[in-house]
């Protein structure tokens, strides 16, 4: 081995994140990532009788509850299941990843303290878990749409990949941040639960975006609509809804905000840029803090 073997150096230097080599390192460790996702899924589902059915139960229960609520309130949106689920599934991906991700480093203290590997893999694995859930739930939604004959509109369907990439990038950025902070301040994980609850209601998932726009555009003479759009998840959810639910005003009722597909695409691109910026910040923070994880746990 002598001459050929690579030399590894361990120094005290506060590491500076160089994205490309780091991505390469993480890709080289994809086996660990896959194993950890497998592990998380197994731990999540083996101890339960229903297994993966749980992940499908969540949207079904939501659907039942909110159908009931909207019927009672008389604010019935046409094809409510498709409307609700197109936004809810995106939200679920985000909230499951963040909820699990906050604890991802702390819960795996046993690994962090005894094995060396790129620590990003831990929060990334929770994103992986929520992606699996997302795929399961989406396939059910797709099936539902096909069975009920709910059509797609090609032009707005193009928003789907963009919204999806936005969602994943933003989720990864947030999860890296939250999981690193939670190592130092354990109450972050409780705070995250609370914040997610507030965030959920700030995101137009169960109520129609058109309504928000109508009410907020001149809110006491102040354009609060643009402030509302600062919530990246609102934008992302609008994207998913426009892609799947497609019609802005089915049967003449405005449900989705009446903006053009192109405008929405522009908004999503802006969100992508902002998310990438956020990712580079939170990744740097995570990377800097991750050197001390083993001794702080």
């Amino acid at each position: 081995m002598a001459a050929t073997a690579a030399v590894t150096e361990r120094t005290s230097e506060p590491p500076k994140l160089r994205i490309i080599p780091r991505v390469r390192e993480i890709v080289a460790c994809r086996e660990i990532l896959a194993n950890l996702v497998r592990k998380e899924l197994k731990v999540k589902y083996t101890a339960s009788v229903l297994g993966a059915v749980w992940s499908l139960l969540n949207p079904v229960v939501f659907l039942a509850v909110f159908t009931f609520v909207t019927v009672v309130l008389g604010n019935n949106i046409p094809s409510f299941p498709v409307f609700l689920l197109s936004g809810l599934l995106a939200w679920n991906l985000f909230s499951v990843a963040l909820g699990l991700g906050a604890r991802s480093v702390v819960d795996n203290a046993n690994l962090v303290k005894k094995v060396s590997f790129p620590r990003e893999i831990l929060p990334l694995s929770t994103v992986g878990v929520s992606l699996v859930d997302f795929a399961l739930q989406s396939s059910v939604l797709l099936l539902f749409m096909l069975v009920t004959g709910f059509g797609f509109r090609a032009s707005s369907l193009l928003l789907y990949p963009l919204a999806f990439v936005d969602l994943v990038v933003f989720t990864v950025a947030m999860v890296l941040w939250i999981s690193a902070l939670n190592v130092r301040y354990r109450d972050i994980q409780h705070l995250t639960g609370l914040a997610l609850l507030v965030w959920f209601w700030l995101t137009p998932i169960v109520y129609p975006g058109a309504l928000v726009q109508a009410k907020l555009t001149s809110f006491h003479g102040f354009d609060a609509w643009n402030v509302f759009l600062l919530n990246p998840l609102a934008d992302i959810v609008f994207g998913f809804q426009r892609a799947l639910y497609a019609t802005v005003s089915p049967n003449g009722r405005a449900v989705l905000p009446p903006v053009s597909t192109a405008w929405l695409a522009g908004l999503l691109l802006a969100v992508l840029c902002a998310s990438l910026l956020l990712l580079s910040l939170t990744w740097r923070l995570f990377f800097r803090m991750s050197g001390d994880f083993a001794e702080e746990l």
Partner: peptide, 24 residues
Amino acid sequence: IVRPTSGVVRYRGRIAALLELGAG
């Protein structure tokens, strides 16, 4: 697994560490 406060460690080749019970 932990970073030194100062100093350098260099090694050649692939390392396998067996640290304490049930590591990993």
